[in-house]
Write a protein that binds this DNA or RNA. Structure first.
Lengths: 340, 340
DNA sequence: CTGTTAGCGCGTTCAT
DNA sequence: ATGAACGCGCTAACAG
């Protein structure tokens, strides 16, 4: 381990001078700067960030704790976070919880021990535990995508209610009346709010709500697959399916395909979140897209503002609008038709 | 920031005693231990790992630098790494390079500054630069999946030559003679070795090698899609396609589907790496599976052995066998048939 | 069983 | 323009 002292010796200066060169701080004559830089190069010296951080009481590191790193939605959010962070010379530690409570708590503990300057968290469950743990250490925190009840905390999220409403509005306008809603866990706000948007749209347009058409599962492909199979067993089949997120949608499409049910001819499908076209063979889905990149970017800017001492209220709820993109996965039907 | 000193004051002991409690080291009477633990709980004290690491000259952190975190192959490898690491009380920093040289170098620099104890690296390119940077700092390193020429470095990887051979052997046994090979970049050993296995099998069984059937691209879905379109434009179409990895295979299937070419009736497809069935609608692919989890696990155990001072040779090449899994994506053809 | 001293690598403060 | 002393939070080595 070569330290700042080794460089100093080689360059014939004091350690502090090396420090000044490294950090571009204070006065250093051009000549000594050259000598120091030569010594650094020769020794292949790399500053010890542990020591620096200890001294600065600052790691310049943000934590991004997401629920499913394999989902393109989150990788896009991640890019937004990284871009915003690097703009301010912060780096990002990416952690994946798989929606698992224990994993989440482990990571948070670890990140706290490492003096992470701020947290971006996609809460895997809706209790204040983790959030309070972070807040009680005085570490700034911004939640992503999901609200958690009973805590004062900033959130940046997509408009789940509005996006769901848009999609259902669209389906109803095409004549659909029996629309299945297959979504994530009931304990996550992103799930329940999409259901809320679904119900609001139904109410607004006078469509009766059949509770058996609303199924909570997981935001995963296999869950979408299973829920679709449930739906297909119903005596009065829906004419359309609303997938609560992109991965559920993939499962839906697969189950429909296996059952030989054509989209959109035999059933219409819409989905929350976009889904890279490459991931699925056919058809191109009609979706409500959240601004994933912006979500990451804005949340990070808010977090950094808090880190830099701006006194903000700690209970902001920033809701990003969704965009309805109509593609080819839906078909108009006559109000009385059925595919049962 | 509450420090060890605050806890010590509250408990009426010296800081070192708190340290002993935290680390379960040395002798502490049950009674003082209780007092200290009470103080820790009351103050919600979390030890500063930066300071600990500085003192220990050890961070208990491994870096895992992968090329594409969205690929299930790498998430599986990651699980293997995490399991092995946590068994020895190490934590893992996961970084994603997107096969990008600059990103890789940035991460490595960052991780070096943070005194990472060891590196697991999937090299995004085949020059010694990054590797030597790590080695020159005396930090143990194990490469994953790919070899890099002109350096002495340990590698744990799947048997690309053997796996490719198995797949081509199988296709040839079904009567195929014109087999397209769509794979990753020419500068990665995992690509070129799969081509080598392809050629070996062809030679062994007396199948003529048509260079125009071998296409190098990227290990991505869009690349698989594009390469397939190239193939389909050929005057003498192949009867089978060998996808160099799972993501390329998805692109292949999508392109074939769009072109209305049925698998396996009109063309056979095999692929290196498995691919979760949920990701693709149809058909179930015949594949050569690498033991992804084991790859991560074994590489980590090797890395930890090196970290713990076992003098190992630094040029181990651990090759894990692949397994041929025959599913429904191939069809036997008569040797003279063609689909052109 | 517990405490004191010293130092990990670095940068702020204050001299020079 | 450069350096010495000190301390960030923690623990190894040694006392007691």
């Amino acid at each position: 381990m070569t330290s700042i002292r080794d460089v100093a010796n080689k360059a014939g200066v004091a350690p502090i001078t090396v420090s000044r060169v490294i950090n571009n701080a204070g006065y250093v004559s051009a000549e000594t700067r050259h000598r120091v830089e030569a010594a650094i190069a020769e020794l292949q010296y790399i500053p010890n960030k542990l020591a620096q951080s200890l001294r600065f009481k600052k790691t310049s590191t943000l934590a991004l704790v997401v629920s499913d790193i394999t989902n393109p939605f989150w990788t896009t959010v991640t890019r937004g976070v990284e871009d915003a962070a690097s703009k301010y010379n912060y780096s990002v530690m990416l952690c994946n919880t798989d929606e698992n409570r224990a994993k989440q708590n482990n990571y948070v503990r670890l990140l706290l021990e490492r003096q992470t300057d701020g947290f971006l968290l996609v809460p895997a469950y809706s209790s204040p535990e983790t959030i309070e743990a972070i807040q009680s250490q005085g570490v700034p925190l911004v939640l992503l995508d999901r609200r958690v009840p009973d805590v004062q905390v900033d959130v940046v999220r997509g408009d789940s209610v509005g996006g769901a409403y848009q999609l259902i509005d669209y389906l109803i306008s095409l004549g659909h009346r029996r629309i299945a809603m297959l979504t994530g866990p009931e304990h996550l706000s992103s799930s329940t709010e999409r259901v809320r948007g679904y119900k609001q749209a139904c109410s607004t347009f006078g469509v009766e709500i059949d509770p058996s058409l609303i199924i909570f599962g997981e935001f995963r492909q296999d869950s979408g697959f299973d829920m679709t199979q449930q739906i297909l067993e119903m005596s009065a089949r829906p004419t359309a399916i609303f997938a609560g997120n992109n991965f559920i949608a993939i499962g839906v499409l697969k189950a429909l395909h296996e059952a030989g049910i054509h989209v959109p001819d035999s059933i219409s499908v819409v989905c929350f979140d976009d889904l890279p076209l490459m991931l699925v063979i056919d058809p191109f889905l009609t979706v409500a897209v959240q601004p994933a990149y912006d979500m990451g970017y804005q949340a990070t800017e808010l977090l950094l503002a808090k880190i830099n001492g701006e006194q903000l209220s700690d209970n902001r709820d920033i809701i990003l609008p969704t965009e309805l993109i109509i593609r080819q996965s839906c078909r108009a039907i006559s109000p009385n038709s059925t595919h049962a």
